[in-house]
Design a protein around this nucleic acid. Structure first.
Lengths: 160, 160
DNA sequence: GTCGGTGCAAATGCTTTGCATTGAT
DNA sequence: ATCAATGCAAAGCATTTGCACCGAC
């Protein structure tokens, strides 16, 4: 599913910092750091890319963690508020999320023939975003960018 | 699906061409051009911007056209397939659409304080998109770009 | 020991669908 | 006349919520 950027070596996210970011956020809100919440964050870190809730539940089951669907949804919302994950992708019945904390913005390119999804980074894009904001007097916070295109494989397949 | 020509000046959309684009699409699929479908397209043209289904239903009622919710949804799907509208915006329970046929791509900037939504166009962005695709050997079809930022008014409001 | 958290099942709310009727070509 | 479209109400589905019990601080 998710591929990565050819220029940067993909590294696994070490768990400790994210975990403490989450703890700090929870404490600041008077909320508790529970095993279920830790399990959900772990599973997200393990995937290290785009995920949807159903996949996350499978990942959790797979690792032998029993977290209810309700709690998973609740935790995803907390992680969004904490700025650790953000929603990604348009045009989908189901919400997709991606880990974002401490990472450069990652954008997506979807193949309209094969459905293949590629992540990429572009500092030019971020620069352009900042310029657009500046021109209009706004302060940039973030962005979402998704390209619809046809991959080389998709072009090859004459069928359909 | 339907893209457009960046060299062409953005002009106000007159109704006739879109209507015939839709008719042509319907005919090509062996589908019928009905008054309800025409009414939905009219209402979308009248709004000429972002809309969600509920708003569209109100617009239709307002103009004295009785089109059922089911038909409106069905027509929206057809218009997407015809390349006349596309889904826009992330992070929303409800789908938002925008008229796109024969227009330059329009992107969005949302104020995180006030919720204000601004549309903008950037040919640099399209150029950047095309370059990114070319570098990876893909053929660009379209894109969605949404900036999260704080508007001048939002910055002024210290409250919250 | 307190609150907040969890799981379950029920509730929501947007969107889709089945079916009998209506209408465009 | 035919075959698709419409409207209604019911069904789907991802997500949220109410509530009784449980667990982190």
């Amino acid at each position: 599913m998710a591929t990565n950027d050819p220029t940067e070596p993909p590294r696994a996210q070490s768990m400790a910092p994210l975990c403490s970011v989450f703890r700090r956020y929870l404490k600041s809100q008077g909320l508790k750091y529970t095993t279920e919440r830790a399990d959900v964050l772990d599973a997200i870190i393990a995937r290290d890319g785009l995920f949807e809730t159903e996949e996350l539940l499978l990942e959790l089951r797979h690792r032998g963690h029993r977290v209810s669907k309700a709690t998973t949804y609740r935790t995803i919302n907390l992680l969004q508020n904490a700025g650790i994950i953000v929603q990604a992708l348009f045009d989908s019945k189901q919400a997709h999320y991606q880990l974002i904390y401490g990472k450069e913005q990652r954008d997506h390119m979807v193949c309209m023939k094969t459905g293949r999804l590629v992540e990429f980074q572009s500092s030019d894009l971020t620069a352009l975003r900042n310029r657009i904001c500046k021109d209009l007097g706004w302060s940039p916070v973030g962005h979402r960018f998704q390209i619809y295109a046809v991959s080389p494989e998709g072009q090859a397949s004459k069928s359909r």
